[in-house]
Design a binder for these strands. Structure first.
Lengths: 263, 263
DNA sequence: TCGTGTGAATAAATTCACAGCA
DNA sequence: TGCTGTGAATTTATTCACACGA
């Protein structure tokens, strides 16, 4: 899961738990779909199923927002859509800049989900001079040199970083210095930011690694109890400083940090 | 995060908490960077800083893996890299297929982080016949018709869905039927899968919405972004709606009900 | 009657703080 | 002496289960 970091999570948020905030967009999406089909009301059970959570959790989540349902009936779809949108701050316009227009940046620029939910791609920025002026998703790419001016002129407070890992921190620093206070980071790097700035990251390879972990466990399912001998560390005593490389050949620890993001 | 856990993958995880598993890739990345710089050992404090977590949490996380450190000294970088890699199942090769080769799919195919960590892009699949044969990231795109055959031939157990929302469930069903048991979903849809199949999702717009929520709170006094006027009253407060927590003083929201979720 | 709203009970995750070993 | 490893305390999240209102 992409997760944010730094900053005081809840407590600040008028009491709404972080875990709940993270699910509101999910409910909103499900509700929007219902709204399109002109469904007037939904029960917590139905909505929960559509959002992929259980109903008790959903009701508890909604209880933090207020009592927006009707006992014996359910929730009014339109009304709930509005309430959640407002709670998430989506009833206002959020100009966003995307820095790093490679494949990923282009994908983000084209992603309909942005434009349709209070987010407006105010500008696309890239360090490659040859890209300047070239339109991506109908928006001309601007050069990094103008980053500060773009941020100011558009009153941007949310920035998306889709640059290679090596450029991320630098871009981040400039964004923050220019006034951006929320950053969505796609580069595989830990960004350090001053207090008051929120960073959330989306990391493609991390998600895969988590899947691999579970996948690995499925493979060794059968063995009940202490069956296999492959469960514990190889005969590798954590003795002090010894480049111990347990058995197995294992493909060398090549690469390292996912070097680069498409750019 | 972007993350979303569906289901209960845990319980099978030999006692390692999900939250810990989710951080292991983070530690691994930081350790790999240290390894490249030939740093022999690190303290929990240093490594924690590099990974963006606090040291107590890191030590607790590592304690679930075993006692791999040396009191008074720290952790042997190489050894820890190996242990975590093994724990995550990265010492083996995981063939992966990416379905849906649009901008996002292409970005994923080009993403260095995949190839460098035990993941191998075994095939790229797209429904558009005109893309067939066309190479992306050096790999020829294959047509959806051959999906099942490709999965089987390559022994693929992890699939990445980067298709439009409308096609996601269908693709998912086929992947699962063909033997895939772990899915990374980039489409903005809740996938339903049978027990035993893990799904993780990465949702670009959800992350932005979470940021907007916090951003909105920061704007305690100043007007954010456009500083748009908040006027237009919400849709009719349906039935009985009791504004519980929502104090009246709450800044009157504006805008109307957000429209639609694109594909 | 039906389904929300919510206290109470559980479970999970985080943080504290310090004993103990290199 | 310095830093790990970990019980205990604390905080956060989830689930239960049922009273209550439409």
């Amino acid at each position: 899961m992409a997760t944010g970091r730094t900053h005081r999570p809840a407590t600040r948020s008028r009491g709404i738990p972080e875990a709940t905030v993270a699910r509101l967009p999910l409910y909103l999406r499900a509700l929007t779909a219902l709204s399109e089909r002109s469904v007037p009301t939904v029960s917590s059970e139905e909505l929960a199923a559509a959002a992929g959570v259980n109903s008790a959790k959903l009701r508890k989540d909604f209880s933090y927002l207020g009592s927006y349902g009707t006992r014996g009936v359910g929730y009014d779809v339109e009304y709930l859509v509005y309430q959640i949108s407002r709670e998430l701050g989506l009833t206002q316009d959020w100009p966003v800049v995307i820095v790093g227009i490679g494949n990923l940046g282009a994908a983000l620029a084209n992603y309909g989900g942005f434009a349709s939910r209070g987010f407006r791609v105010a500008a696309l920025i890239d360090a490659d001079p040859s890209m300047a002026g070239k339109p991506v998703a109908g928006i001309p790419v601007q050069h990094t040199d103008d980053l500060e001016a773009i941020i100011e002129e558009n009153g941007v407070s949310i920035g998306v970083i889709a640059t290679p890992a090596g450029a991320a921190q630098q871009v981040c620093d400039r964004l923050v210095a220019a006034g951006v206070t929320s950053i969505l980071n796609f580069a595989p790097t830990v960004l350090s930011v001053p207090d008051g700035v929120d960073v959330r990251k989306v990391d493609l390879s991390i998600e895969l690694q988590i899947l691999a972990f579970h996948e690995q466990r499925k493979a060794g399912e059968e063995a009940p109890g202490e069956g296999g001998a492959d469960t514990t560390p190889p005969a590798a005593p954590p003795a002090a400083a010894v480049r111990r490389r347990g058995e197995e050949s294992e493909p060398g620890p090549d690469g390292d940090v996912p070097a680069v993001m498409p750019a």
